[in-house]
Amino acid sequence: MSLLGGAGALAVGLVLLAAGVGHLRGPRDTARALRAHGVLPGGSVGPVARTLGPLEVCLGLGLLVAATGLLPPGPARLLALAGTALCLAFAAYLWVVQRRVAGAPVPCGCGLGTTPVGPWAVARAGVLAALALLAVLAPVTGWQDAPGAPAGAQLAVAVLAGGALAVATAALPAARAVPEQLTTLARVPR
C-alpha cells in the first residue's frame, strides 16, 4: 500500500483523462496548436493530433485503475512509467516550443483550455512527471488496514490528495496567464 503512489497515479490519471477528452473533442484545435508550435514536421501533425487523445484517455484510465490498487505491482508500475515518460516528453516538447516562440501567444494545445505556451506549461508537465514517478517508485498494491489507519481512510486521503493535486496541476498555467494590464469592471486601468 502506498498513499503517495496512489495520489500520484490518481492525479496524473485525472489530468491525462481530462486532456485526452479535450483532444478527442477538438482534434482540429490540437492540430492547429501543433502547427503553431512549428516543431513537428508538417506530415506528422495530423496523425499526432489524432493519436494524442486516445493515448491520453487510455493511459489516464489505466492510471486511475492503478490508483485503486486493483492491479498487481508490475502492471501498475508499467502504467506509471508510461505516464512518467509521456509527461517528460510533454515537458521537453513544451520547453522547445517555448524557446522557439519566444513569448508569442501560441496556444499550448494541452487539451485543458487555451492557455498559451509558457514556463508554467513546462512546469505542469514536469510536476505531472514527478507525480507519475511516485507511482513507479511506490505503486499501490491494495489497500489494507494498518494500525491506526483503516483502509477506507487511506483510500479517502489518497483520493482527496490526488484530486487536489490534479486540479492544482491542471490549473497551473492558466493561473499564471495574467494579462499585463488589468482593468476593472468600469474599464479603469489598475
Rank of each mutant, 00 (worst) to 15 (best):
R100M: 13
A138T: 15
L112K: 09
L165T: 07
G152R: 08
V167C: 11
L79G: 14
F90P: 03
A158Y: 12
G118D: 01
C108I: 03
P150L: 03
L137D: 07
L78F: 15
L131W: 04
L78E: 09
Y93N: 03
L128G: 15
C87N: 00
V167L: 12
A85N: 07
L88P: 07
R100C: 14
G103Y: 04
A76V: 15
T115Y: 07
R77H: 14
A164N: 11
V96T: 08
A153Y: 07
A104C: 13
A130V: 13
V101P: 14
G142V: 15
V96F: 02
Q98W: 03
L128I: 12
A82P: 15
L81K: 11
T114D: 13
A156K: 02
G111M: 06
G109T: 08
L155E: 11
V140I: 14
A130M: 10
A161K: 10
W120R: 01
W120Y: 06
G113D: 00
V136A: 09
W143M: 13
V140G: 11
Q154V: 14
L88M: 04
L94N: 05
Y93P: 11
A89R: 06
V157N: 04
T141I: 15
V136G: 09
L128H: 09
A166F: 12
A130D: 10
A104L: 11
A132W: 00
A91F: 00
A76W: 14
G163R: 07
Y93W: 02
G83A: 08
P105F: 05
P147S: 11
V101E: 02
V157L: 06
V167M: 08
A80F: 09
V106F: 05
L133E: 00
A146C: 12
R100H: 14
V106I: 09
T141A: 15
G148L: 04
L131I: 10
P139D: 02
T141D: 13
P116Y: 07
L160M: 10
A91C: 01
L86W: 01
G162W: 07
V106K: 02
L112F: 13
T114I: 10
G103L: 01
P150I: 07
V159L: 15
C87K: 00
G74A: 09
G83R: 01
W143D: 11
G109R: 04
A158M: 14
L94G: 08
V140F: 10
T114V: 10
A164Q: 11
V97C: 04
P107F: 06
P75Y: 03
G162N: 07
F90E: 01
P139V: 02
W95D: 06
L81Y: 15
G126E: 07
P75G: 04
G148F: 00
V159G: 12
L165F: 09
T115I: 12
G111F: 08
A149N: 06
F90I: 01
A129K: 01
V127Y: 04
V127W: 06
G152I: 09
L94S: 05
A138Q: 13
V167N: 09
A132M: 05
A130Q: 08
L134K: 08
T114H: 11
T84R: 00
P150F: 06
A158Q: 12
L78C: 14
V101I: 14
V136C: 15
R124S: 08
P119Q: 01
A153R: 08
F90A: 02
P119T: 04
L128E: 14
W120A: 06
L165P: 12
C87H: 00
A102F: 03
G103K: 03
